[in-house]
Every structure is written in C-alpha cells, then in structure tokens.
Design a protein around this nucleic acid. Structure first.
Lengths: 196, 196
DNA sequence: TTATGCATGTAAGTCGTTACATGATTTT
DNA sequence: AAAATCATGTAACGACTTACATGCATAA
C-alpha cells in the first residue's frame, strides 16, 4: 500500500494533475517508488472516491488537465501510515539470483552484464551527487532539510555500495570450476557447500 | 520472470519437492528472492508443462511428496537467462517514502520504526556473518566458491549499509520544523527545496 | 478417534506492466 | 487539413498475497 501514500505526499508538496505526477515520479519520488501513468490515474480515482483527495476547480486553460489536492482526511491517513509497523521486505535482486545460477551452470555473458550494471549505477550516483550539491550544500546544513537529505543520502549510499560490490566482483574470476555452458551436461547435485 | 529461474537453480542444486523448495526459499535463496508455497507450486506446474523439469519417479514413502528434477531444456533456459540484458529495477523502499512523507506532515512514531528496522538489520547481518564463517572460512578461499561467496558478500554489504544509514538517521533530530501532526493544518506547498 | 501436523493445492483480490484507445491542442 | 503531441484513460495479463480447502499420516 505504498503507492497511494506516495501520491498523497507528492500532492501535499504540490497539487498536481495526473501527468504532472507522472513527471515527478520519473524524478525525485520515483527514485524509491516508481509508477507508470496508468497506475497513477487508477490510484487518483481510488483516492478521490475514498474522499482523501479532491479535484481542484478546473482551470479551463489547455487540455483537460485535472489537478488534485489532499483533503484533511488524506493528510491524516498519511500521518497514520508513517507510524505504521512495517517489516522491511526481503530484497528482490535478480542480479544476485543470476550469480547464484551462474555458480551452478556457468557464467558466460555474465561479466558483460555486471559491467553494464556498474556503468548504470555510476551514472545514478553522479545524478544523486549533483542533486546533493544543488539542494543540500555543505555551508547551510539546516535541520529543516534533514529528512529530505537523509533520503538522498540513502540513495547515494546504495549506489556506492553496488559500485563497490560490482567492482570487487569484476576484479576476480567469474567462471565456475567444472560446469560449462553445455546444456546436456548435468553436474552432480551433491557438491554444494552453499548455505541452505 | 525471476521466480522460475530461481526454482530451476534450486532444483539443479538438489532435486526437491514443493515443500522442500519452500523451506529452502525461506533460507538461502529467499534472501534475495522470497516466494510462498503457493507461488512455488504454481510455478512448478508451469515448468513441468513447459518441459523444463519433470517429476521424479515417486518414492512411495510418507505423504504424497513429488520431487522434481531439471531437464536439459530447463538447464539451457537458465543459461540463456543468466546472460540476458536486464536493467536494474528502480528500488522500492517504503521506509524512504515514509521519511519523505514525514518531511511534509511530521514524524511522530517514525523514530520507533527506524529503531525497529535497525534491530532487524543487525540480526540479519549477524546471520549472514555466521553463514560466511561456516561456509567460506578465510583459510580456504577457493575460486570455485567465489560466486556463492560474492552473493553472500552482497547481502552483508547491504545490511551493513542500512545499519550505518539508520544509525546516522537516529543520531540527529527527526522532527520537521514547522509541520505538526494536526490533520487540518495544511502547510504551504511552495517551500520545498527538495529535488523534483 | 479425534487431533495435530504434513504436503499439496484452489480461489480471490491487489499491484504492476504492456499495449492500445480517445479526445483536444498545437504545429506544419 | 493533416500530423504530431498532450492528457487522460481502458483492457488484458502476469506476478504476488492472503485466505481457505483437501487428503494423508502420525500422535494423543
């Protein structure tokens, strides 16, 4: 149930139309919770029906843009959600899954993928650092911005972690000892010192 | 499409029944791709119908346990998947969303959540380190285990990152300057230096 | 023989993704 | 007027979650 609350937060920051929200989800909010415009429109409809937001009186300018604002009920729902007890979900990392699979059947082509991911993470880190420099300059470290800055620091830390890990992974051999990529040659299932 | 390949990997490591897979997904594999038994049974059915795995001749012992093994086609499908080009998905971190929401409407109850998460991550890290000590002792750093060890190192690194970040977050003030938790008092939408 | 646990499964609903549809406005 | 773009939306599917159902084996 994160999407509706992400939308409430975005609308509190600034009342917006569906498309404007979509644009904003491509940037800051979407760094930690992406959403397509279809999801957003559907969720806006639900939120309006639930009485948590309402459409602002139409500005009859261009297009049919409908802007929404958060109602007191919506704000209250958001406050409740913040304090809810939610366990961290077990991570879903297809890349690690692929590494583990490569340990069993061989790893041709995997190094290229790791390098590609490394480049992507480096680009993302650069983008985060740019935002930090722009919005949270060292000279004015204010307490009011602390939460926003913490969110950004989390993004920076995660990217830095992946870059370090991928670099370490690419530094050593990726091939597995016995198993080749030959489809027919089944390796023995027994010799797995991996944790179960 | 990660779950079927996670299952193929698990079955290559050791042919198993649905429940055995469920147990194993609660442990090693599930650290990076969790799955419930319902998902697993459904996926086993699909994989069998696709001719990627087959049920082993019944051991008529207790219960109705059906064990599956991977067929050459399944192994080939896994090899292909490893080399596929898959972009890293944008992270989904509800906790960061909640921080961002707290920056807008206030943060009562958030500190308790952060502390709870910190404890959970510390426990998880301890578990990973225990596994590392058991399965990858320093004296026998072999290349054959390198991929499995890398996967585990990723888990360790992620937990370490969260612990560090949460500690840093809890070290400072979490309250937001102006906004209280009062549902009716809407704050101005303008003053957001946050990146958009 | 009831109860408890094991093992496999069905059903329903939500969330997310991909592809397509529609009307309005701006550009050529 | 035709084409491109903007803005909102529908439809269909697949993945995941939660709750429930069933048959079998062992234990009380």
């Amino acid at each position: 149930m994160s999407l509706p609350h992400a939308i409430l937060t975005a609308l509190l920051e600034k009342p917006s139309s569906g498309l404007e929200l979509t644009r904003r989800f491509d940037k800051s909010i979407g760094f930690f919770w992406s959403a397509t415009h279809q999801q957003i429109y559907r969720e806006l409809g639900k939120l309006e029906q639930s009485g948590l937001i309402r459409a602002l009186p139409q500005l009859p300018s261009r297009g049919q843009r409908k802007a929404y604002e958060v109602l007191p009920q919506g704000r209250a729902a958001l406050v409740d959600w913040i304090a809810e007890s939610q366990d961290p979900k077990t991570a879903r990392e297809p890349l690690l899954l692929r590494l583990r699979a490569a340990a069993v059947v061989g790893a041709p082509g995997l190094a290229a993928e790791l390098e590609r991911h490394l480049a992507l993470h480096e680009r993302q880190l650069a983008e985060y650092l740019e935002i930090e420099e722009r919005d949270f300059p060292v000279e004015k470290a204010a307490d009011e911005n602390r939460l926003q800055h913490l969110v950004l620091r989390a993004g920076i830390g995660m990217e830095a972690f992946w870059i370090q890990w991928l670099t370490e992974a690419l530094a050593g051999p990726l091939a597995v000892a016995s198993a080749g990529p030959v489809p027919g040659a089944l390796t023995g299932p027994a010799a797995m010192p991996q944790a179960e």
